[in-house]
Design a protein around this nucleic acid. Structure first.
Lengths: 206, 206
DNA sequence: GTCTATACTAGGATAGAC
DNA sequence: GTCTATCCTAGTATAGAC
């Protein structure tokens, strides 16, 4: 048992996440991470074997929230509730984990050179599950016949952009940080456009 | 006048674009670019002063198509035509310039450290123009009251994802290259969902 | 205009003192 | 468990022959 070790690892991981998000894998120097938390470089190597291990740990820390986001597709029986919750969840992730999201986006952008195979498989399973659910709703006439895979691509992209490309968002919203209201507006706008666009009418109030 | 020089520069630029797209700025080595076109490393330095200049040239080569994409907002007087064309154009860009798009995305992802100020300003102008046009259409009752800025974010993200995150797209579509049909399906799906989602009904056939 | 050889620096990683 | 000093590889860039 080593609470000190876990605590220090968490501090390093957080600093690494931010640095990798801003500079990419190759662009990140161990010394930058060390400086950010005012720790000597060698200390980083004591807690994490090497740069690759540290990077992979950052990637893995984001898997749980990412996989949890698809839960609404399992939980609900109507696309109105499922898509509403899914969009809310994804926007929450963009708000709360922008750096981890960027590291992940960067990884995908470059063809996922560091993404472990087992994670890829889990993501594929989740996607297949969500796709099947969408197709069922289409078959039942609960929504329009919209290509499920492409609808998912649209949902992922439109929600993640608030984390991954937040530089651009902030530029055009003329703000230093995307505020609570703008996240809410983003979420509401997406929900409104997507639900209506897919011909989803909410069932009568429960 | 030096046709040889221009031709060689174009070859280097193309190789650089692909390499920067796959590995990012810091992850790209000049020697990788040189090897790809079977040219000695020093030759690259003869045609481009240094790595930064070369990278910036790649970035700038993408500005023209990018700015052109917003033309539909100026050209048309009805959101149905404008948004349809805009989506088609953006998907075309993702199909035809996936690498340049990735370099640009990577740049934004990291906070645009190499993007020249004049380009940023041009992009801002285009965005303001498109936003104003959307607001006019809303005011005229040609479409629902959808936050124009957030609609743009959605459109950008949903179209660019077919270039920037094509690794993911290919993974889930189980293909080695996104085929013509899938690009068409992407385009059609987006147009259908967005137009309906914004309450845009096309005017009667001209 | 092209290429070889090389100078120079940055950055990942480790040895070993404390 | 922490830190200093150092090793060593890799990668940018240039000098100068052809």
């Amino acid at each position: 048992m080593s609470r000190i070790r876990d605590k220090k690892r968490a501090i390093i991981l957080s600093a690494a996440c931010e640095t990798f998000a801003n500079n990419g894998y190759a662009g990140t120097k161990i010394i930058d991470i060390a400086n950010k938390i005012e720790t000597p470089k060698a200390n980083i190597y004591y807690y994490f074997d090497n740069k690759k291990t540290l990077y992979r740990s950052v990637l893995e820390s984001f898997i749980t929230p990412l996989l949890n986001a698809t839960a609404p597709f399992d939980r609900y029986h109507h696309p109105a509730a499922a898509l509403t919750d899914f969009i809310k969840l994804k926007i929450e992730i963009s708000k709360n984990h922008p750096n981890a999201s960027k590291v992940f986006a960067n990884e995908i952008l470059h063809g996922a050179p560091h993404l472990p195979q087992d994670i890829i498989e889990k993501l594929c399973q989740q996607t297949t599950g969500a796709c099947n659910k969408l197709q069922q709703w289409i078959d039942k006439g609960l929504m329009d016949d919209v290509a499920p895979m492409h609808l998912l691509f649209m949902l992922w992209a439109a929600t993640q952009t608030y984390a991954d490309f937040n530089w651009q968002i902030k530029l055009h919203l003329k703000t230093d940080a995307i505020c609570e209201q703008q996240f809410a507006l983003a979420s509401d706008t997406l929900i409104k456009v997507i639900l209506k666009g897919c011909g989803i009418t909410p069932p009568m109030a429960q």
